[in-house]
């Protein structure tokens, strides 16, 4: 005689993210093209705004409504940005000693503080014997 019953699907958030990534890969409902290092990357503004303080500040206001192509002058290079875009859609951040400086710079630019901290932990760990 509980007040109410709930079935919690514990995989739901990762299943939703997986479907969003599939939509991205197929260009379904992607509403912005990011020009990063001249390379065009399609994405969903809603995912970008949910994952990045920088995109939150750009797209939350009316100014972000009509924007469907966004170049990031003086912004991150593609080899630092692409792993972050994949992270947003997969929760997995690919890092290597060669790419972590570019990923760190991109995460700082995109105001993704938690990723910045993880990059610092990765760098720290790579110095430990």
């Amino acid at each position: 005689d509980a007040l109410g019953y709930v079935r919690e699907f514990t995989r739901h958030s990762s299943d939703v993210l997986g479907n969003l990534n599939e939509l991205r890969l197929r260009g379904i409902l992607t509403d912005v093209t990011l020009l990063v290092g001249g390379q065009p990357l399609r994405a969903h503004k809603a995912v970008l705004i949910a994952c990045s303080g920088f995109f939150y500040s750009i797209f939350r206001g009316r100014a972000g409504v009509g924007v469907d192509v966004l170049s990031l002058p003086g912004g991150p290079e593609a080899r630092g940005f692409a792993p972050l875009l994949d992270f947003m859609y997969t929760s997995r951040l690919r890092l290597s000693p060669a790419t972590v400086p570019a990923v760190l710079a991109a995460a700082t630019y995109l105001q993704m503080e938690h990723v910045v901290q993880a990059c610092h932990r990765f760098i720290q760990a790579s110095y430990e014997p």
């Binding site: 949910a50 994952c51 990045s52 939150y56 947003m88 690919r94 993704m112 503080e113 938690h114 990723v115």
Partner: peptide, 22 residues
């Protein structure tokens, strides 16, 4: 090969929290 990738699990918050509407 995915198998060759060392995966470290990060349990903490991954992204910013969008402030709740006051």
């Amino acid at each position: 090969h995915e198998g060759l990738v060392a995966t470290v699990k990060e349990a903490g918050r991954s992204i910013h929290e969008i402030p709740r509407e006051e």
